[in-house]
Amino acid sequence: MDVFMKGLSKAKEGVVAAAEKTKQGVAEAAGKTKEGVLYVGSKTKEGVVHGVATVAEKTKEQVTNVGGAVVTGVTAVAQKTVEGAGSIAAATGFVKKDQLGKNEEGAPQEGILEDMPVDPDNEAYEMPSEEGYQDYEPEA
């Protein structure tokens, strides 16, 4: 019985440690998101679009440190934060509304985080759909 109880105690310690790591990862992701939003706020009209992409990228980098179902929630929060940063930029006159959601080359930025393969159960990952990809044929 002692062996059984000791095993359960060790398992509990492992769960607590994993929860603490997840909590730490979420806190880091939130900190990076805040950094990115402050970065966007300090940019001029020309830099705002690039700044919004930076927020998304920093958040995406930190999301990889967070495991399990938390990833889905962090990704949703990050996307809403990026959308909010863009709205703030438009409201303050840093950028025109028609410039939001495009990178410096004018290509749409939507789907940055949505296409990231995420499995809350950590069982399997699927690649994003290939609808947006084109076949590449090298020139002879």
Score class of each variant (00 low, 15 high):
54 T>M: 14
64 T>Y: 10
81 T>N: 03
91 A>M: 10
78 A>N: 01
88 I>V: 04
91 A>S: 04
132 G>Q: 13
115 D>S: 10
117 P>G: 13
88 I>E: 03
136 Y>W: 10
60 K>N: 01
27 A>E: 02
62 Q>F: 05
123 E>G: 05
64 T>V: 12
139 E>G: 07
102 K>V: 10
121 D>I: 15
7 G>M: 10
120 P>N: 07
41 G>W: 09
106 G>E: 07
129 S>V: 10
52 V>I: 04
129 S>P: 12
88 I>Q: 04
62 Q>I: 13
64 T>F: 14
121 D>N: 03
7 G>R: 15
109 Q>W: 12
128 P>V: 06
78 A>D: 02
13 E>R: 11
112 I>T: 14
129 S>R: 03
132 G>V: 12
96 K>E: 11
134 Q>I: 06
96 K>W: 12
115 D>I: 04
19 A>L: 15
133 Y>V: 05
6 K>W: 02
119 D>M: 08
92 T>S: 13
34 K>S: 01
33 T>R: 01
106 G>D: 07
15 V>E: 00
56 A>E: 01
53 A>I: 10
120 P>H: 07
83 E>V: 10
66 V>H: 09
17 A>Y: 14
82 V>G: 02
13 E>T: 12
35 E>M: 11
37 V>K: 01
125 Y>N: 08
48 V>A: 04
84 G>H: 07
96 K>D: 04
109 Q>N: 00
77 V>M: 09
123 E>A: 08
16 V>H: 03
26 V>A: 03
71 V>L: 12
132 G>H: 04
80 K>Y: 11
40 V>A: 05
64 T>C: 14
136 Y>M: 08
14 G>I: 15
34 K>A: 07
94 F>R: 01
91 A>P: 05
42 S>P: 01
79 Q>R: 08
115 D>P: 03
58 K>A: 10
11 A>E: 00
41 G>S: 12
52 V>S: 02
1 M>K: 00
90 A>T: 14
112 I>C: 05
123 E>R: 08
106 G>N: 04
78 A>S: 07
11 A>V: 14
25 G>D: 04
132 G>C: 08
137 E>A: 08
74 V>D: 15
68 G>E: 06
115 D>M: 10
126 E>T: 05
100 L>Y: 01
20 E>L: 09
70 V>R: 02
16 V>L: 09
98 D>M: 06
47 G>N: 10
126 E>F: 05
109 Q>T: 06
87 S>N: 15
97 K>P: 05
75 T>R: 06
57 E>G: 04
29 A>F: 14
61 E>L: 09
63 V>T: 03
139 E>H: 08
104 E>C: 01
132 G>T: 06
7 G>C: 15
133 Y>E: 07
9 S>Q: 11
132 G>L: 11
73 G>E: 04
11 A>D: 00
63 V>E: 01
84 G>I: 15
135 D>L: 12
14 G>N: 05
55 V>N: 01
101 G>N: 01
111 G>K: 06
61 E>Q: 14
25 G>A: 07
17 A>L: 05
62 Q>L: 10
41 G>Q: 12
59 T>D: 01
17 A>C: 06
24 Q>Y: 14
65 N>H: 11
85 A>N: 03
22 T>D: 00
127 M>V: 12
19 A>F: 08
130 E>G: 08
70 V>W: 08
129 S>I: 06
127 M>I: 10
14 G>E: 13
4 F>P: 00
66 V>P: 01
113 L>E: 12
61 E>W: 10
22 T>L: 05
66 V>L: 11
40 V>Q: 00
68 G>A: 07
58 K>P: 01
106 G>T: 08
84 G>R: 14
50 H>M: 14
133 Y>N: 14
54 T>G: 13
113 L>M: 10
7 G>T: 09
140 A>L: 10
22 T>E: 00
76 A>S: 06
76 A>P: 02
71 V>P: 03
119 D>C: 12
81 T>G: 06
81 T>V: 12
43 K>L: 09
83 E>G: 10
97 K>V: 15
46 E>Q: 04
44 T>C: 11
87 S>A: 10
70 V>Y: 05
71 V>Y: 06
29 A>P: 00
25 G>P: 01
3 V>F: 02
67 G>Q: 15
138 P>W: 06
129 S>Q: 05
35 E>N: 08
12 K>A: 09
104 E>N: 15
52 V>H: 01
95 V>F: 15
8 L>E: 00
132 G>D: 05
70 V>P: 01
39 Y>Q: 07
39 Y>T: 12
78 A>R: 11
16 V>R: 10
127 M>A: 03
103 N>L: 08
53 A>N: 07
98 D>G: 09
59 T>P: 01
95 V>R: 07
5 M>S: 04
33 T>P: 00
79 Q>V: 11
70 V>I: 14
134 Q>Y: 11
6 K>C: 03
83 E>L: 04
53 A>Q: 14
129 S>F: 04
39 Y>F: 08
57 E>N: 05
63 V>C: 07
5 M>G: 01
108 P>G: 09
23 K>H: 05
98 D>S: 15
101 G>F: 05
2 D>Q: 07
135 D>E: 10
84 G>C: 05
37 V>M: 08
6 K>F: 04
120 P>Q: 11
130 E>C: 09
25 G>K: 09
84 G>W: 13
66 V>Y: 13
122 N>A: 03
105 E>R: 15
94 F>V: 03
140 A>Y: 13
130 E>M: 07
43 K>R: 09
85 A>K: 02
79 Q>W: 05
99 Q>L: 15
49 V>M: 15
95 V>P: 09
96 K>P: 05
135 D>G: 07
40 V>M: 10
89 A>W: 14
8 L>P: 00
91 A>N: 08
61 E>F: 03
17 A>W: 11
65 N>P: 02
117 P>W: 10
62 Q>H: 11
60 K>L: 14
100 L>S: 08
115 D>L: 08
110 E>M: 09
72 T>I: 15
95 V>K: 04
51 G>D: 01
105 E>M: 04
23 K>Q: 14
20 E>W: 06
22 T>Q: 00
37 V>N: 00
56 A>M: 13
117 P>C: 12
107 A>D: 06
109 Q>A: 03
66 V>T: 03
48 V>C: 04
108 P>Q: 11
54 T>Q: 10
63 V>A: 05
61 E>A: 07
38 L>M: 14
128 P>Q: 07
112 I>N: 15
3 V>R: 15
82 V>N: 04
24 Q>P: 00
135 D>W: 05
126 E>H: 08
140 A>N: 09
